[in-house]
C-alpha cells in the first residue's frame, strides 16, 4: 500500500514535471528583457483563413491575456478606428505602417502583429472540429527589434463518442449546423488567444503592472 502511493506520487510528480517544463526549448529573451516594454499596441490581426470574421473576433480577445500579464493594452476598437480615419481600411495596410509613425500616433513601447491562419470548423465526415490557430510577433517600437514570437492553436475538443456510426454522423452534422448560426470560432479564438498571449514559459514575460514582473 505504501509502495503504491509512493509510486503514484512519483508518477504524478514526473507527469507534472513533463506537463510544466519538459516541452520548453530555449527562447532568447535578451532583447525583450532589455527593452522592458510597458505598453503594447495590438494591430487588427491579418486573416489567412477563409472566414472573414476571424480578424475582429480574434482582436476582441487579446486585451485580457495581455493586460493580465501586466501590460497596458491600447483600446483595440479605438485604435482600429484611428487607422480607418487615416484611410487604412484593412489589417494588411495597417501592418505596413512604419514603427516611427505608430510611435508618434500612439506612443506605444511595442507593437504586436498577429496572423490568424486557421479559423472555424472543418467537416470531417465523422466529426467536425472547430479550430483557431494564430501566430504573433512582438516588436520594439523604438528600434524595430523582434522581442518575441510564438504560435498557438486550440479546438473545441468536441469529439463524437458513442452512438455508433449514424450517431456520429448525425452529431457531426448537427454541430456543423449550429456552427453556422453562432460563431463557435469565437469561443475557440478566446482559448487560442489566451494560450498565445498570457505570460508563460516560452511565452510573453510578465509586464510592469503584474506583481510577478521581474525587475532585472
Amino acid at each position: 500500500m505504501f509502495i503504491t502511493i509512493n509510486r503514484i506520487s512519483l508518477l504524478a510528480f514526473f507527469l507534472l514535471l513533463t506537463g510544466c517544463v519538459a516541452t520548453q526549448k530555449d527562447i532568447d529573451y535578451t532583447a525583450y528583457r532589455q527593452s522592458k516594454p510597458r505598453s503594447i499596441l495590438v494591430l487588427p490581426p491579418l486573416n489567412n483563413s477563409p472566414d472573414i470574421r476571424a480578424t475582429y473576433s480574434f482582436l476582441s480577445t487579446v486585451t485580457k491575456p495581455l493586460a493580465e500579464a501586466g501590460y497596458y493594452v491600447f483600446p483595440v476598437a479605438l485604435v482600429d478606428q484611428t487607422f480607418r480615419e487615416n484611410g487604412l481600411l484593412n489589417p494588411g495596410e495597417m501592418h505596413q505602417v512604419p514603427l516611427d509613425k505608430l510611435r508618434e500616433i500612439f506612443g506605444a513601447d511595442a507593437t504586436l502583429y498577429i496572423t490568424v491562419t486557421q479559423y472555424g470548423s472543418s467537416y470531417l465526415i465523422l466529426s467536425s472540429e472547430v479550430r483557431v490557430t494564430a501566430n504573433a510577433k512582438l516588436v520594439d517600437n523604438r528600434n524595430g527589434q523582434l522581442l518575441w514570437q510564438g504560435m498557438a492553436t486550440a479546438t473545441d475538443e468536441g469529439n463524437n463518442n458513442g452512438g455508433g456510426l449514424v450517431g456520429a454522423l448525425l452529431s457531426a452534422l448537427i454541430k456543423q449546423v449550429i456552427s453556422n448560426v453562432g460563431d463557435p470560432g469565437h469561443v475557440v479564438a478566446r482559448k487560442t488567444s489566451n494560450r498565445l498571449l498570457k505570460a508563460s514559459p516560452n511565452g510573453l514575460l510578465y509586464g510592469p503592472r503584474s506583481p510577478l514582473y521581474e525587475v532585472n
Binding site: Y56, S57, T63, A67
Partner: peptide, 20 residues
C-alpha cells in the same frame, strides 16, 4: 490561478458584439 488584476465585466464581449 493568480487573482485577476482587473474586473473584466463585458468589455471584450462589447467589442466583439460591435464588430460581429
Amino acid at each position: 490561478k493568480q487573482p485577476l488584476l482587473y474586473q473584466w465585466g463585458s468589455y471584450e464581449d462589447q467589442i466583439y458584439a460591435m464588430y460581429s
